[in-house]
């Protein structure tokens, strides 16, 4: 019970201190909207429905990875993160609390293009039972990638730079812009090592029915990625921040 009081208050503090700040709210709305408009202008004849999986994935990826990396690096440079490390709670609870805020922010980001699309097209055919858990798992894996970046970065600008090293290659290798089958053969193994590949495929399947992999396999692999990234992040924090 005591751990959950701590969990809830860390989450509440992060949401209030970081995610509900005007710059982040505007980032959370403007960024997905810009992506959506860019894609619509770029392909005027294109279907909004076919663009939606990519827009959702990009919004979640960009919303989560940098946000967690930046907030943790910011707290570490001000030493307030030390207060969490010194609390009588397990490292797992602390990590879960820190990623929970980012995951919520990522989900908020994901649904901006969905709401925007709802004004233009009928979304009743979309399989929400797949979209919602898929968005959640993309947000969780991306947030944990952000945490991995935070452990390696000393300064906020480093966290932002490292985030881009991860994010941009991921965007081009996960099947969002180029179908996996059209990728050079030597790049395909890398694609299959990226959690976003499975998230995007799930969204493609749920929104347009154009998935390549079985949804069960994608969900299973995303869960495995989430568990592995969580354990690696926890291990890295334990190794690097408790010296």
């Amino acid at each position: 019970m005591k751990s959950w009081i701590a969990f809830w208050n860390i989450l509440k503090k992060d949401v209030k201190n970081y995610y509900l700040k005007p710059p982040n709210i505007s980032w959370g709305i403007i960024f997905p909207l810009s992506w959506t408009l860019m894609q619509l202008i770029r392909s005027p004849g294109g279907s909004i429905l076919t663009l939606l999986p990519g827009l959702i994935s990009m919004s979640v990826l960009f919303g989560t990875t940098s946000m967690l990396a930046v907030t943790i690096t910011f707290e570490r440079s001000g030493r307030s993160f030390e207060r969490l490390l010194l609390a009588p709670i397990s490292l797992s609870i602390m990590v879960l609390a820190k990623i929970a805020g980012t995951v919520l922010f990522g989900i908020f980001n994901a649904f901006v293009p969905v709401i925007f699309a709802a004004f233009f097209i009928d979304l009743r055919a979309v399989s929400w039972g797949v979209v919602i858990p898929a968005v959640l798992l993309i947000a969780v894996t991306s947030a944990l990638l952000g945490l991995l970046i935070a452990v390696s970065a000393e300064q906020v600008f480093e966290a932002q730079t490292f985030s881009n090293f991860f994010r941009f290659p991921m965007l081009f290798l996960c099947g969002l812009f180029i179908p996996l089958a059209d990728l050079p053969i030597f790049l395909r193994p890398i694609s299959y090592c990226l959690p976003l590949t499975y998230g995007t495929d799930l969204l493609n399947g749920a929104i347009t029915g154009a998935n390549v992999l079985s949804p069960f396999l994608s969900f299973g692999l995303l869960l495995l990625f989430a568990a592995a990234l969580f354990l690696i992040s926890r291990h890295n924090i334990n190794r690097k921040w408790i010296m």
Binding site: S3, A6, K13, N17, R79, S80, E82, R83, L84
Partner: peptide, 21 residues
Amino acid sequence: SNLYNEMDGFENLCFCAALYG
């Protein structure tokens, strides 16, 4: 000091108390 600059004094103390359950 390792408290939170964004929070006021009362909030900081309440947050620290919450960390102890």
